[in-house]
Amino acid sequence: MLVLSGVAVIIIGFALGVNPLLVTVLAALASGLASGQGVGATVAALGHAFVHDDFIAIGWLVLPVIGLLESRGLRERVRLLVARRAGVRVGRLLVSYLAVRQVSAAIGLSAIGGQAQSVRPVLAPMVEAAAETAGPLDASARPRLRAWAAATDNIGLFFGEDVFLAMGAVLLMRGMLLQAGVAADPWRLSLWAVPVAVFAFLAHAARLLRRDRR
């Protein structure tokens, strides 16, 4: 039970607002020490795991592209494009993005979209410009609109990708069940993702459209 001390460190650390990077390392140390490994072994285990999760960093290869385009006025351009069409509603814009994101993830194109690739340079400025066509924005409205854009990207991705047969989640489930002696057809695994995807779309779209009416 002592190994759960790491979980406690996470909860307390996040609640207190300590630097998350520091909380993470402290949690790893706490659980490692509680499980009876020494400090050296725990640090080595952390280093090993960190280095072998390096594929996560690859997404940052997009930074020079986006940075360069932004410095040459990408966000201004996007804003201009939207601002020209009066009457674009924020909610409706995000509903169409949600649909595109879910469908593309469901056919295996989960790399379409993403916080650095599309939310910051394109979607967020679009949403802000759409809101501005209805009148000037106050200071607190801007971050809220951006948060809606980020959230919509996440929801579209999560409840789209599981429908795709070769997705990591489906492969992981299949592997896990195979170890337990159950030969699961990938088709049946992704079948259950469909009603959930439809419900997630309806629920989020309803919230977005209700936002428009306010």
């Binding site: 993470t24 390392v25 949690a27 790893a28 659980s31 490994q37 960190f50 960093a57």
Partner: peptide, 16 residues
Amino acid sequence: PQMLAALGAVFVACGV
């Protein structure tokens, strides 16, 4: 993100 993934691996290894 990478650090949290590493934490997950350490958690699994420790039996959390």
